[in-house]
């Protein structure tokens, strides 16, 4: 029988060092994961199926669920509609002042949410804003919810699409041009299909951001029940009247909706992956 190879002291020291390295990273990552799971578990144990059922029976909460689903979906579509051309132009075209414009697109990401709501409110108090409101009421109405969500969600979608188009080699488009495509055909037939996974990620981010948006909605749309109430507003309203059980129940509904959408889109994304053999 061949004897087991003996390890040199250096090899043993190297293995010990590797173990310490991975263990320290694992502990750091694990503690964050634990914190996330602990908060979810605390919510879960605080409430009961009865509370959840009761919350679902409330007409106000059912309205908030419907408005949340509708506004998040609308915001996602609007965000993609804007983020695709903006992301493409920022990735492919070089022009003076590009860095400044790039930074401006990031403003909604770094700005405090309340400030975004306040800025929207002030914008619609200006002469053009008031003129628009005469024909199409926005402030404290349902469109304000979508606009408040869009302001933040679109910035995340733009960032994602920019990164996606940056990763797609311009060579693919150039080949398409030599094959007879116009610039527009090359975009629709080659670039956009290749950006499909980025599109899904941008959509997921935009939807999830919209669902969690609260500050701008509170300032710009108000918190009127059965009118501009979305799920994040419901949590605030229930908390403000001391109904902690309902607030937690609605929070769990939001967690469930967000996890469901993330799982659905990610599963769909991997199903549509181009790397699967036919």
């Amino acid at each position: 029988m061949t004897p087991a190879p003996t390890q040199s002291p250096q090899a043993r020291a190297a293995r010990r060092s590797d173990r310490v390295f991975f263990a320290s990273f694992g502990i750091l990552g694990g503690s964050y994961l634990l914190l996330l799971l602990a908060t979810l578990a605390a919510d879960l144990f605080y409430t009961s199926p009865g509370h959840l059922w009761h919350a679902l029976q409330s007409p106000e909460i059912r309205y908030a669920i419907r408005l949340s689903l509708l506004s998040c979906t609308l915001t996602t579509l609007l965000s993609l509609w804007v983020a695709v051309p903006v992301g493409y132009l920022m990735a492919r075209v070089r022009f003076p002042g590009q860095r400044l414009i790039d930074a401006i697109f990031d403003i909604p990401i770094v700005l405090p949410p309340l400030v975004i709501g306040l800025s929207l409110l002030i914008l619609f108090q200006t002469a053009p804003g008031r003129a628009l409101e005469r024909f199409f009421p926005v402030t404290y109405a349902v469109p304000s919810v979508v606009l408040a969500q869009f302001m933040v969600a679109c910035a995340f979608a733009v960032r994602t699409m920019r990164a996606t188009f940056d990763q797609i080699s311009p060579r693919h488009e150039q080949v398409a041009l030599t094959l007879g495509c116009t610039r527009s055909q090359a975009f629709w037939m080659v670039v956009l299909p290749e950006a499909r996974r980025g599109l899904l990620t941008a959509a997921t981010l935009a939807w999830a951001r919209s669902l969690g948006e609260f500050g701008p909605i509170l300032v710009f749309s108000g918190a009127t029940r059965m009118k501009t109430e979305v799920l994040s507003t419901t949590v605030f309203l229930e908390l403000s009247v001391g109904n902690l059980e309902a607030a937690v129940a609605v929070s769990l509904l939001m967690v469930a909706a967000a996890v469901l959408v993330l799982l659905l889109i990610r599963t769909k994304g991997s199903e549509n992956s181009f790397h699967r053999p036919v």
């Binding site: 060579r171 693919h172 150039q174 290749e194 790397h275």
Partner: peptide, 8 residues
Amino acid sequence: QDGALFQH
């Protein structure tokens, strides 16, 4: 150089 095939 790398073929630049369209992945989809």
